[in-house]
Amino acid sequence: MNKLLVSPSPHVHTSVSTQSLMRDVVIAMLPAALVSVLFYGWSEILILAVSVISCVGLEYLISKFLLKRPATICDLSAVVTGVLLALNVPPTCPWWVIVIGAIFAIGVAKMTFGGLGQNMFNPAIAGRVFLLVSFPTYMTDWTVPAGFIHATDAVSGATLLGAYAEGGVEAIKGINYLQTLFFNIGGSAGEISACALLVGFVYLLVRKVIRPHITLSIWGTVAVLALIFWAINPAKYPDPIFALLTGGVLLGSIFMATDYVTSPMSAKGGIIFGVGIGLLTVLIRYFGSYPEGVSFAILIMNATVPLINKYCHQKKYGRK
């Protein structure tokens, strides 16, 4: 008889692995990526390719040559960052800007902290914010390139949020929310279709990759705050549905705020985190100088996670 294994219990293990979780996140982003390719065509394919390849390549090179340890690219977390970064830039963004974004996301925000699990900030958000600050012109060029589907029927031109920032409530009069739900041309790639993002959200919930607390508390907070402002002064502030469907709230709340590493552990902590993001998003939008507040809000709240974790614990059995 062969030698028997003797390790302590448990003797069985779940089939869920880091890799399978990350694969599920990639799958959940596919509808949004697909829609962006349909509407933005070849340039979007290029962006996706450049972004994923540079993120994965950088992670490989850094772990192999700088950190001198086995590369962890098989866990697919770099692919997630790559797709997310691509969904976070405008379709006209030059390829080298994306490479710089990837260098910041993977090189600075992720690997200098020790790689997956050790980073304080979500790499894709960090990359996006870095680009937003460093290359504002490229990051807010909302020219619509030719896509595979002709988008005459879609809301087009500048992003809705940009239009609102410039022209106020007047500028966004008459937009059709039903249409926004399906295709809202002129945002960064990931913001085209609320519907595609929601499909991804449902997939993540069904596969039990994420819990709904964080995302829902962001939506709730944004909606309630927007409602208050709108009720006070409907001539100045847009309605809550507008606030939710535009400016990357969906993309950020579903895919970036829910990043395991950079969000709180407990459900209670997740709610505080989500409320914080919602609050900051609305405040930055209405009172800050950037029309788009989600990325900054998530980044700021990422920094509070250790503190939240310190004070928020789940209920223990048999203890108060």
Partner: peptide
Amino acid sequence: SNCIRCGKCAE
């Protein structure tokens, strides 16, 4: 591999 801080153990 690295803890990804998913909280699944606590859940």
